[in-house]
């Protein structure tokens, strides 16, 4: 895949000694959705701020389409749209003038058709003449997205784009993000909603305390780190595991009516068939079987902790 952003040995420290980014190297590929996950204060927003020209790095290098963000900031900034984490919009402006202002700021002439299409997509068209101060939190967040998309960026940074947005609207936003990707926009997403990353992302990066812990394709990550569990509901209560079943390291839950078996799907033999046979030999009747795969959230919590 063709890299669109490359970050090499990026460091950011403040005068008080706090290290926000510690030797971060990362490549974002053209056309992908990259989810950057990390707890509060991990360095996600600092990283975005440096790439978009809001913050100055202490050392290291960031290139957007081979243009250094420090040496050629005007070129690199022109390719990027940013939806910031904080809902910061001039409160006394109308939606339409605020979005037109953003387009102009990025050096693009007025385009009524394009702006109308964005506002309609984000269900803002009917409210276009309302002042920002009159809008709900969710609507303000949509205005931020409209402003970021107003200049047709090649790369879009979404810093917690659906924070404070209701479930229905969040799903609508996901559709918009997916359609942007289909139109060739590269999307870098930071989020607290792991479900969001799991649904949207092609690749996932974990960041904590200013360091990138891991970058991996989402599916590979889930398969590599993902454990599967088999929950076996049985018809009679058992107090202890029979000797023939000890090798399976079963866990007894649900007051003795459920057995939990952990296995790895990547192993050639999962042990499920022999377990079921052994349960039958022990005369344990099955009522139900449920399988669960660990989510990105489980992997993330495991890594960060």
């Amino acid at each position: 895949m063709e890299p669109i952003i490359s970050i090499n040995s990026l460091c950011k420290s403040y005068k008080n000694g706090f290290i926000a980014l510690d030797d971060v190297s990362l490549t974002i590929n053209k056309g992908e959705i990259f989810a950057l996950l990390g707890p509060n204060g991990a360095g996600k927003t600092t990283l975005i701020s440096i790439i978009t020209g809001i913050s100055i790095p202490s050392s290291g290098e960031v290139n957007v389409k081979n243009f250094d963000v420090i040496k050629h900031p005007l070129v690199s900034k022109g390719m990027i749209g940013l939806v910031p984490q904080e809902v910061s919009i001039e409160p006394f402006e109308t939606i339409i003038s605020s979005v037109n202002f953003s387009r102009g700021l990025f050096g693009k002439p007025k385009d009524v058709k394009h702006i109308k299409s964005i506002l309609k997509q984000l269900s803002l068209w009917d409210k276009r003449n309302s002042k920002i101060i009159e809008l709900s939190g969710g609507m303000k967040r949509r205005v931020l997205i409209a402003k970021a998309l107003s200049h047709e960026p090649e790369i879009l940074f979404l810093d917690e784009p659906t924070a404070g947005v209701d479930v229905e609207l969040r799903k609508d936003m996901w559709k918009i993000i997916k359609s942007l990707k289909n139109n060739g926009v590269t999307i870098i997403l930071t989020t607290h909603y792991i479900e969001e990353a799991e649904y949207l992302a092609d690749r996932v990066g974990f960041i904590n305390k200013g360091k990138i812990l891991l970058v991996e394709d989402k599916e590979i990550l889930i398969n590599k780190f993902g454990k599967k569990t088999l929950s076996i509901n049985i018809d009679k209560k058992i107090i202890s595991i029979p000797k023939t079943l000890i090798k399976y390291k079963l866990e007894i839950v649900n007051s003795g009516y459920t057995l939990i078996y952990n296995y790895n799907i990547n192993n050639n033999k999962t042990g499920i068939t022999s377990l079921l046979n052994d349960l039958s030999s022990e005369n344990i009747q099955l009522k139900d079987i449920i399988t669960n795969q660990s989510s990105l959230e489980d992997i993330f919590v495991d890594m960060v902790s």
Binding site: S49, T52, G53, I54, P73, L74, V75, K77, G78, I80, L82, P84, E86, S88, I89, E90, P91, S102, L105, F106, G107, K147
Partner: peptide, 17 residues
């Protein structure tokens, strides 16, 4: 005012000299 409400970030992230 843009500094106070945070909208200066839009200006800083835009290709303006």
């Amino acid at each position: 005012f843009p500094k106070f409400i945070g909208t200066i970030n839009e200006l800083l992230s835009a290709p303006v000299s």
